[in-house]
C-alpha cells in the first residue's frame, strides 16, 4: 500500500537530469527529511537517470519512467525504468569502477546508489530495458 504516489515520464535528454532529481526530492519533502537524506536521494536518482541516458538510450532518445511511492511515514520507494539497451551482466555492471562509458565516467553509479540508499534492486533484459528500484528510509528531523 502507498500513502502517496507520483509518476513522471521524461525524454532521455541530459538536461532532464537536474529536473528529475529535484522533482523526486521535492515530492519526498512531505516526509520532512533531513538535508542529508534529501541529498542522498538526489544523488542516487541522478545516477540512475544518467545511466538511462548514457547506457540505456546510448545512441537514441527514449522515455524514462519514474515512479515515487511514499510507503510509510518513514520510507520511500523510487523506480526508474527505461526501455533501452539493457544490461548483459548485472553483477559486473554493479562492480565499483566497471564502466562501458569511456574515460570520463567513473564507473561508480551503482556504488553511489547502493551507499546512498538502503536497498538497490536492478532488473534488466538485453534489448528490453532496465528497471532500478531505490528504497530509502527517511528518519527526518522531527521523528
Amino acid at each position: 500500500m502507498n500513502i502517496n504516489e507520483f509518476k513522471m515520464t521524461v525524454d532521455s535528454r541530459s538536461v532532464n537530469e537536474g529536473f528529475t532529481r529535484t522533482a523526486v526530492a521535492a515530492f519526498t519533502a512531505q516526509l520532512d527529511p533531513t538535508l542529508e537524506e534529501i541529498n542522498d536521494i538526489k544523488t542516487a536518482v541522478s545516477e540512475a537517470v544518467t545511466n538511462c541516458i548514457v547506457h540505456g538510450y546510448k545512441n537514441s532518445v527514449g522515455k524514462i519512467f519514474i515512479t515515487v511511492r511514499i510507503k510509510s511515514e518513514s520510507a520511500v520507494l523510487i523506480t526508474i525504468k527505461d526501455r533501452g539497451a539493457g544490461i548483459e551482466d548485472i553483477k559486473k555492471a554493479r562492480e565499483p569502477l566497471f564502466t562501458t562509458g569511456g574515460s570520463d565516467r567513473a564507473g561508480l553509479g551503482f556504488s553511489v546508489m547502493e551507499s546512498f540508499t538502503d536497498r538497490l534492486t536492478v532488473r534488466s533484459a538485453v534489448g528490453r530495458g532496465t528497471t532500478v528500484t531505490l528504497y530509502k528510509r527517511i528518519f527526518g528531523r522531527a521523528k
Partner: peptide, 16 residues
C-alpha cells in the same frame, strides 16, 4: 551545490 559521480569522473580525468 550538487555533485554526483560525474564529479569523480571530472577529478579522475583532470588527474590523468
Amino acid at each position: 551545490t550538487f555533485m554526483d559521480s560525474s564529479g569523480i569522473g571530472l577529478v579522475m580525468g583532470r588527474y590523468k
